[in-house]
Amino acid sequence: MNNAANTPPGWSYNPAAWSQRLPIIVLAVAGFVMAAYLALYQYRVVPKVWEPFFHEGSETILNSDLSRLLPVSDAALGAFAYLLDAITGIIGSQKRWQTMPWLVIAFAILVGPLGAVSIALVIAQPLLFDAWCTLCLATAVISVLMIGPAMDEVLATLQYLKRIHTHSAAQFWRAFWGLKTALE
């Protein structure tokens, strides 16, 4: 499964192996389910939201003006982002750090801002509304936990692109899109 041919040069393991990617995909799916549930409450498809600790906290946060700043609610946007994370986590072979650099980098660009926005919203909860929302915090934990494990694959891809660029700058974009190059 995780054979040496897929492992990037100088690495002791393959960051694109399923054993490495699966936990991130599971986290993304869990984040999607939670965010989708919160969005369903925001659009009143479900009438009440589950809140075990902070009483009216979830209602305050989920019905706040901040959550409706954009045309779609923040949880709906979050659910969409987690879904994209899960999909970009699944696509590609165990050598995708080399065969699909564009995808690995798109995946990183999705994971990074998702974490940043989640943390900004966590800061906003006590600061602007003096309230906490349990499931909102849980989704933030998930998006933070995804960052670390996602980054090794990005590093392998960037190292590969750097090698290509050093060898022949003209081949860079072909490598980026996963097309055949003279190197490797």
Binding site: V144, I147, G148, P149
Partner: peptide, 18 residues
């Protein structure tokens, strides 16, 4: 403000690569 920032950075640093 600092709590979530600290926790996030430390949680990312849990992994060897980062």
């Amino acid at each position: 403000i600092t709590g979530p920032l600290v926790a996030t950075l430390a949680a990312v640093a849990l992994w060897e690569c980062t």
